[in-house]
Design a protein around this nucleic acid. Structure first.
Length: 333
DNA sequence: ATGCATGAGAA
DNA sequence: TCTCATGCATA
């Protein structure tokens, strides 16, 4: 069933896109999203001394499973994760046999100085690498290529380089930033991937075989998240051209097997995943509902109350915030 | 498929 | 310190 999969340390360049300020926006989808969240929004106020009082209250509510019924409700947090970067020419090369439509979605593109050139410019890929092979299914394994650098934004470098020109397989058009388009692509991608008989892990490692500058391998997790749209909008946009390139590549050379037996393993330190118990988790969610960005002090307080390491709590909040920003149910619909 | 974690880069 | 892209470990 599983395979031992061992990747090299962790080399990756995260060109990281500038952080944008997402202006307000939707409220409906935001509501939907929250409604789907495991934790019903708490109704507390953010006034009063957000001290032990609130913490205790939140925890108390959490303990009771939160019934909510106080005459106070606050609006949802206007925290959209959007912004789209887009400023590169459009080669209209949507090789995607998808039904794309054009329409305008109110995308607030808060472009910052850096954004203007921070995009993926079609890295005219004309490569021919071997597609993954192996047909095992599952979330398991596969050999891993030890490519360096991951694929954040193939932009940075290529943008300026403007290697555009030849066969533009990827093009950044507004349709590429369209959530519906992304969703459609993701679905289609998964379908075709399965048809090719490759696992998510296979795709991840195969990406390194494509010689796209700045693009290395990705993990099964990321491929999975791409397919399920559980990535940020920006992340989806950045990955789409890459995965699309792989897909076309793989389908084109479905016969070749250029497998690369990467077998280097020092076998060591296995990271242990700390697991937060359900009760504690509930409390955290309660706290989060009332104050998604607790101060360092508050985090410390919470950590102590729940008997968790402060860092664990901090990271939990970070991840929780990030979760809220995923594509699914992310507004703009 | 997801939870918790790391690290780079921006604030 | 936070955000964001990613990944290991795991259910």
């Amino acid at each position: 069933m599983m395979s031992m999969n061992s990747k090299q340390p962790h080399f990756a360049m995260h060109p990281t896109l500038p952080e944008h300020k997402y202006p307000s926006l939707h409220s409906s989808s935001e509501a939907i999203r929250r409604a789907c969240l495991p934790t019903p929004p708490l109704q507390s106020n953010l006034f009063a001394s957000l001290d032990e009082t609130l913490l205790a209250r939140a925890e108390a509510l959490a303990a009771v499973d939160i019934a909510v019924s106080q005459g106070k409700s606050h609006p949802f947090k206007p925290d959209a994760t959007y912004h789209t970067m887009n400023s590169v020419p459009c080669t209209s090369t949507s090789t995607v046999p998808l039904a794309h439509h054009h329409h305008h979605h109110h995308h607030h593109q808060a472009l910052e100085p850096g954004d203007l050139l921070d995009h993926i410019s079609s890295p005219s890929l004309a490569l021919m690498a071997g597609a993954g092979g192996a047909g095992a299914a599952g979330g398991g394994g596969g050999a891993h290529a030890g490519a360096a650098a991951a694929a954040g934004q193939v932009a940075a470098a290529s943008a300026a380089a403007a290697v555009v020109g030849a066969a533009g397989l990827a093009s950044i058009c507004d349709s590429d930033t369209d959530p519906r388009e992304l969703e459609a692509f993701a679905e289609r991608f998964k379908q075709r991937r399965i048809k090719l008989g490759v696992t998510q892990a296979d795709v991840g490692s195969a990406l390194a075989n494509l010689k796209i500058p700045g693009v290395g391998s990705l993990s099964q997790s990321t491929i999975c998240r791409f397919e399920s749209l559980t990535l940020s909008h920006n992340n989806m946009i950045a990955l789409k051209p890459i995965l699309q390139a792989w897909l076309e590549e793989a389908e084109g050379a479905q016969r070749e097997k250029m497998n690369k037996p990467e077998l280097f393993n020092g076998g060591e330190k296995k990271r242990k995943r700390t697991s937060i118990a359900a009760p504690e988790k509930r409390s955290l969610e309660a706290y989060f509902a009332v104050q998604p960005r607790p101060s360092s002090e508050k985090i410390a307080a919470i950590a102590e109350k729940l008997d968790l390491k402060k860092n664990v709590v901090r990271v939990w909040f970070c991840n929780q915030r990030q979760k809220q920003k995923r594509m699914k149910f992310s507004a703009t619909y």
